[in-house]
């Protein structure tokens, strides 16, 4: 019979796996159903709803597994692991995750909406930096103003969706109840 600690660990692993699968599916659905926005690196970021949710309910470690794991899972499925598309996704995901973890560690000063807006901006900035490295030119950075501007409403949409999700999943919203 499992001890309470083992059971808790098993539940955590299972929850992480479910969130990772959900993020991967949402990311895939977005690429198939929603047309890409006409600015490189800019997406609605449906998968980030799950990352924000994971960060609010389980903390940075699980959020990191979900965010970076999703990039690897999608790249493995698409056969683009190690390629330019993978590097763009990884750059955006790492930048967004880092910024959101910093804001989350600041306590109640920032809500999930703030995390999401900052994460969205960091994501586009990270992707444009990787794109600049890929084309060996600073030209992609010319898209920074419009990308950052558009990342605000997209970040709001993701943040509100995450907050709604957190409020509708009461058993998991322990630490995020007030957010």
């Amino acid at each position: 019979m499992l001890s309470p600690a083992d059971r808790s660990a098993a539940q955590r692993i299972a929850s992480t796996a479910v969130l990772l699968a959900l993020a991967a599916v949402l990311g895939y659905l977005e690429s198939v159903v929603l047309p890409p926005l006409p600015v490189p690196g800019l997406r609605v970021g449906l998968a980030n709803i799950v990352v924000v949710f994971a960060l609010a309910t389980y903390g940075p470690r699980v959020a990191g597994i979900v965010s970076i794991g999703r990039v690897f899972v999608v790249a493995l499925a698409a056969g683009t692991l190690g390629g330019p598309s993978f590097l763009l996704s990884l750059g955006g995901a790492l930048a967004a995750l880092a910024v959101m973890i910093v804001l989350a560690s600041a306590g109640p000063l920032f809500s999930v909406i703030g995390w999401s807006v900052a994460g969205s901006a960091a994501h586009v900035a990270g992707q444009l930096l990787v794109a600049a490295a890929l084309v060996t030119s600073a030209a992609p950075l010319a898209l920074l103003p419009v990308s950052l501007g558009l990342s605000i409403p997209l970040g709001f949409a993701v943040g509100y969706s995450a907050r709604l999700l957190i409020s509708r999943v009461p058993d998991l919203s322990l630490s995020a109840a007030g957010r």
Partner: peptide, 10 residues
């Protein structure tokens, strides 16, 4: 600019 990041072309 017009950029094709996966191809490294702009």
């Amino acid at each position: 600019p017009v950029i094709c990041a996966p191809n490294g072309v702009s």
